[in-house]
Every structure is written in C-alpha cells, then in structure tokens.
C-alpha cells in the first residue's frame, strides 16, 4: 500500500504541475460564471439554469481532465522511459497502475471540490439555495469521472494517448445515450442490428445512471437507495476496468 500511495502522490504532484489542468479549470470557472448570461434569457429560471450549467461544467471539464491526462498517464511513462527505474524496483506492476489511477482520481477530486466551492459561492451570491440533492449530484459526477479515468488508464496501457483519448471520448458520449441501443423502434425487431446494438448496450457503461442534473436543478429529492445503487454500479465498472488495466500492463514489455 505504501508503494501505491508513493506512486499516487507523485502522479498528483505531476498533474498539479501540468498546465493543462489549469487551463481546464480556468474554462470551467469561466463557464460557471458565464451561466448568468443564459440565466438572463430564461426569464424567471435563472437559478435553475445556473445550477444546471454548474453541474454540466463539472461533468464536462472533469471528463476532459480524465481523458487528456489519463489517456497519456502510463504511455507517457513508457515513452519518456521514466518507467524503467520504477519497474526495476521491488513493486508489482498492479501497484504502479493503481497508484497512477488514484493519483489522477485525487486530482479530479480536488478539481471537483474547487468547482463545487466556486458554484456554491456563486449560487449563494445569486440568491439560490443549495440542498442535499445538489451534493448527491456532485458525488455521482465524481463517481462517473472515476469510472471514465479507469477507462483512460486501461487504454493508456494499450494504445497511444491520441487514440486512447478518442476512444474514451466516444465512450463518454455514447455512455450518455446507451438507452438508445436498448429502446429501438419496432422496425429493428428480429434484425442483426438490434443484436449488435444490444451488445453495445452491455459493453458501454450507462453514464446516465450518474446524471442527477435535472433533479438538482429543480430541487427534486433523490432517495439514498438510488444514490447507493449508482455508486455500486460505478464501483463495479471501475473495479472491472482497473483489473483489465492491471492485466494488460502485467504482460507488457517496456
């Protein structure tokens, strides 16, 4: 565990010194403050719109951090040969993969906390109330980003950063629309297309499970049971992806 933490801390420190992180955080903050503009054009709905945009900004910019930093995390170590002296130490390769993962998740966690702080302060300033469902929505966004990071780490151990980033981005987009693969119109009945799309439904995580944006914006309470289910779903997917990432990296020559 000490070795995993050492790798995680180092990854955290590396990401903190990465300019990409600050650029993304800047744009996230700009989007949150810019939500006022949309609030103006939606008469009487400005607080709802601001809440909606704040959560969307956390989700999108958090995903961009996970994709851009995560997809190059392991590959960069191989490419820059920093991995040579690390893997020559008495550590298991899975410890390295988990350390890299936890380091990046910690960075995303800090980014989410920062964006939450900015959003809450801004909403308070604008006269909006923040309830439990708002924080439940943020918790599930964090779970979704942890899942996306696991995908990014897996691909980082297998393909180049650009290829990895494209694939994870596609998963992020289609993951928000997996119901489409399941609820096909009747003309798809008994076709190969239905079978293929159903396979996609099970291969790609349903990221809408983590989406409480509309509930948070409208202050509609969500049960603890649902949040627990969503967390369990996210953790199961994350664990499976991390196991695959460890296995992929275990047999790899560097």
């Amino acid at each position: 565990m000490t070795r995993i933490i050492a790798v995680a801390e180092n990854t955290f420190r590396e990401s903190i010194r990465d300019k990409v992180l600050y650029v993304l955080l800047f744009f996230a903050a700009a989007t949150i403050f810019g939500s006022k503009i949309l609030g103006w054009i939606s008469i009487g709905q400005d607080i709802k719109i601001i809440k909606d945009i704040c959560l969307a900004a956390m989700s999108v910019f958090g995903a961009l951090i996970a994709i851009f930093i995560g997809a190059s995390l392991v590959y960069k170590e191989i490419d820059k040969k920093t991995l040579y002296t690390i893997l020559a130490q008495p550590l298991h390769r899975y410890e390295f993969v988990l350390g890299k993962y936890l380091g990046l998740v910690a960075i995303i966690g800090v980014a989410i906390v920062l964006m939450t702080g900015i959003s809450v302060g801004y909403l308070y300033f604008m006269g909006g109330a923040v309830t439990l469902v708002w924080f439940q929505a943020i918790l599930l966004i964090f779970m979704k980003l942890a899942l996306i990071t696991a995908f990014a780490i897996l691909l980082s151990a297998l393909v180049s950063p650009i290829m990895g980033a494209i694939i994870v981005f596609c998963i992020y987009v289609t993951g928000h629309a997996t119901e489409v693969f399941k609820d096909l119109p009747p003309q798809f009945d008994d076709t190969i297309s239905r079978q293929v799309l159903e396979i996609f439904y099970y291969l790609i995580p349903n990221l809408n499970t983590f989406n409480l944006q509309s509930e948070a914006a409208n202050n509609v309470p969500v049960t603890g049971a649902y949040v627990s289910f969503a967390l369990a779903y996210g953790l199961a997917w994350t664990a499976m992806l991390l196991i695959l990432a460890c296995l992929a990296f275990e047999g790899r020559d560097v």
Partner: peptide, 14 residues
C-alpha cells in the same frame, strides 16, 4: 538490484 539505465530518465519536475 540497483539499476541505472542508459541515459537515465527521471521526473523532470522533481
């Protein structure tokens, strides 16, 4: 083992 690769690369920011 203590290993030194040819042209050792380390984290530049450390």
């Amino acid at each position: 083992v203590g290993y030194m690769p040819e042209q050792p690369y380390f984290y530049e920011y450390l």
